[in-house]
Amino acid sequence: MSFTMLAVVVAIGLIGPLLALPRGWHIPIVLGELVAGVVLGKTGFGYLTASDPRFTFLADIGFGLVMFVAGTHVPVRDASLRRAIRPGLLRAVLTGVVATGLAFALNAIFGTGHVALYAVLMASSSAALILPIVDSLGLGGRSVVELLPQVAIADAACIVALPLAIDPPHAGRAALGAVAVIAAGVVVFFLLNRLERSGLRQRAHKVSEDRRFALELRVSLMVLFALAGLATATHVSIMLAGFVLGLAVAAVGEPRRLARQLFALTEGFLGPVFFVWLGASLDLRELGTKPAFIGLGAALGVGAVISHLSGKLTRQPLSIGALASAQLGVPVAAATVGTTLHVLQPGEPSALILGALITIAISAAAGGIAVRHGLTAPKRQ
């Protein structure tokens, strides 16, 4: 990868904000970045080479940061969220049960042998997508409060389960690796909590702000890269390392200055690099050679929505259930890891992303329906 190519990657990444500019569309920025990568990657002109080691390394850093930021967006310190854990857990489990049944049906139809993977995909939710939609639309009320733990539980559980589901022959190794990364994340949480309680973190923050040292950002990146190194060494996705660290930071309380710095670094540079790389790595032409995978992608997307609509059995509004079906991080990781491990058939990674895009479109529409049904937070006086 040259500086010229990097400039092109950053430039075409601007398609994301341009498509997301009309507020009424509720289109996630990453959608435009993926499309840009598809156009200049394998599927399109072939200008971007996703197999370039330098491009891949930058994308891996971006992936870790994207999942780190997603973890920090989970409101684990919210008291109302803790009270809603029980109904949220019930709905997440119910969704998982329905998704498992649908996964067996899809495997019987398409014969890929990926029952566990499809169950994890359809049961997953993306906090990084759903929380911004909730905030931007001003959604609120009891059903929305109960949605948050449901999404957080599903997101975390599926991130942990994905390495086990995508490569069953090495599930034991992946389980040990996941335990190691999670244990390291717990240690990080206790260390951060100790620094917070002792006041050392606040004093370091004051010095850093006055002297412009960016200490919190430097330390966060150091820990992220260390956890990513542990994940890589134990054959676990970098996704888990980033998400675990994000949860640890959210549990202690993320400083606003750090949040702004992470936002700038992730959304301004490395996040778009990752999503453009992902789009460039997909070969959607393979879907043309195997049209059945177009049906698989559509079935995965619709199956995810149906799985989450099962919350209606517990009196969850249908629009909120459909909103909970939005997914991206888990399908992206599945496509990335599955391609790296060569456990997916040609065209199958693109089918996974197609399914995710369908859930994004449906969840965006569901958010608008929820607003029209009055599921909004009271306006502040």
Rank of each mutant, 00 (worst) to 15 (best):
L217W: 10
L21P: 02
P291H: 08
E209Y: 05
G271P: 03
T289W: 14
V9M: 15
D135N: 14
V236F: 11
T289Y: 07
L94A: 06
I320S: 10
L258Q: 05
F269L: 14
V302L: 12
A175E: 15
R201T: 03
G41V: 08
D60P: 05
I27L: 11
L137E: 13
I353S: 09
G172D: 14
V332A: 08
V236E: 08
P75T: 06
L313I: 13
L344F: 05
G16F: 07
E196R: 12
G88A: 09
A128M: 03
T95D: 00
L262M: 15
A11C: 03
R197L: 14
S307P: 06
R203G: 07
R86S: 07
S325Y: 00
R197G: 03
F243M: 04
L58V: 06
G242M: 06
A326D: 02
L195V: 10
G24I: 06
G101N: 01
G138L: 14
A214W: 03
G367E: 09
G268Y: 07
G140R: 05
V223P: 01
E254V: 10
A333Y: 02
T376W: 06
P272K: 13
T95P: 04
G303C: 06
R201E: 13
L106P: 02
T4V: 09
L90R: 05
V207F: 15
I320P: 04
I320F: 10
S208Q: 03
A333G: 08
I27Q: 01
A59H: 06
G355Q: 01
R142M: 14
V187G: 09
H205A: 14
V115A: 00
H205C: 13
V93N: 01
A248N: 05
G199S: 12
L31W: 03
R194Q: 13
G24V: 09
G41K: 12
K379V: 15
R77Y: 08
K290F: 15
S80M: 11
E286L: 13
S307H: 00
A298S: 06
R142F: 05
E216T: 05
H205Q: 14
A377D: 10
R82N: 12
T49H: 13
L89Y: 11
L121W: 00
F275P: 02
V35H: 04
V188K: 02
L6D: 03
E209G: 04
A108T: 04
F3H: 13
V330K: 02
L245W: 03
S281H: 09
L217F: 10
R86L: 12
R260Q: 10
V207S: 13
F45E: 06
F3K: 09
V134C: 01
S126W: 00
L313K: 04
R212A: 12
L328Q: 00
S220R: 00
L357R: 01
F55P: 02
S208L: 02
H342E: 11
V179N: 11
I353Y: 08
V273W: 01
A361P: 09
L357S: 05
A70R: 03
F275V: 02
F3I: 15
